[in-house]
């Protein structure tokens, strides 16, 4: 039981970070970022290159992941999403752009890093063992703590900094924010870049445990979509709640249902459908977000 709960916290913390970036981008620009999983993989590969290949310290690798994805996100928003949103007569056109980007990132990753599974040396050795009731490698605990710290600092940033306030205003009402003197174009760019950065940061954190490979992008995006649906799209607290709930469901499902084969996700999906039938906007979402 303790083991399942610990696994749930560990999975939930990392899932919540992925969902945070996705929901931030959605709240600001009404863009469903299909390429989110690929950004996560890209972040993982950047850390892999700097920490695993070039021998920099792990923290430097993480910083590089963040910086790379931040710049990449800013460029993508500036030169791709902003013009398409301006020209297109339908919101949904951005989805095609995002899907195209997902394919593009997949191709770039394939060319640069190949399709093999990559891993890096462990950052901390040893396993925490409490009477064989709870077994957890130290590096997992460290990553989990780092993830929770990042989430807390992200919330503080959104709550108290000037940029965070502007971003929240933008998410609430674009026109009103503009009238209040918020530079909408600039903060959309920063918001998208932040969302991409969060994806890169999770990728960098997790490369130490699960490693990274090309095929991880798509399934990660799908999981992120599920979390956002549970919590409600475009709401930060919802993304965190969704991530933690999915993390726990997965941990419990894998422990309880393992003898019935690979049906954990089937069960999660069925319960999600029932849940959405009762509450279509998710736990904390605005109706029709």
């Amino acid at each position: 039981m303790e083991q399942i709960l610990a696994n749930g916290v560990y999975l939930g913390a990392q899932y919540a970070m992925i969902a945070l970036g996705l929901t931030l981008i959605f709240a600001l620009m009404n863009v469903l970022n299909f390429a989110h999983g690929q950004m996560y993989v890209l972040g993982g590969f950047v850390t892999y290159t700097f920490y695993g290949q070039l021998g920099f310290p792990f923290v430097a690798g993480l910083v590089m992941s963040c910086v790379t994805l931040f710049i990449l996100g800013a460029l993508i928003e500036r030169f791709l999403f902003a013009p398409v949103i301006r020209r297109s007569s339908r919101d949904e056109s951005t989805m095609l752009l995002a899907a195209g980007l997902a394919f593009f990132f997949d191709a770039v990753i394939l060319l640069l890093f190949g399709e093999k599974q990559r891993g890096v040396p462990k950052i901390v050795n040893g396993v925490f063992n409490w009477d064989f009731r709870l077994i957890m490698p130290y590096d997992r605990i460290l990553i989990c703590v780092l993830a929770i710290l990042s989430i807390v600092s992200f919330i503080l940033f959104m709550q108290y900094s000037k940029t965070g306030r502007a971003l929240r205003a933008l998410a609430q009402d674009r026109t009103a924010a503009q009238l209040m003197g918020v530079n909408v174009d600039r903060y959309s760019m920063i918001g998208f870049a932040l969302g991409a950065m969060l994806a890169g940061l999770v990728g960098g954190l997790l490369v130490t445990i699960t490693g990274v490979n090309l095929g991880m992008g798509g399934p990660t995006s799908i999981k992120a979509f599920m979390m956002v649906m549970i919590g409600g799209a475009g709401v930060i607290s919802g993304a965190i709640a969704g991530g933690i709930i999915l993390g726990f469901l997965e941990a419990i499902g894998l422990a309880v249902l393992s003898q019935y084969g690979d049906i954990t996700y089937l069960m999660i999906f069925v319960s999600l459908m029932i849940f959405l039938a009762i509450r279509p906007q998710g736990l904390m979402g605005k109706p029709w977000g």
């Binding site: 959605f26 799209a233 959405l276 906007q281 998710g282 977000g289």
Partner: peptide
Amino acid sequence: RLRGVYFAMITLVL
């Protein structure tokens, strides 16, 4: 009953 992005996401999960 879902709309917009919610419907898109759930069909993708489907």
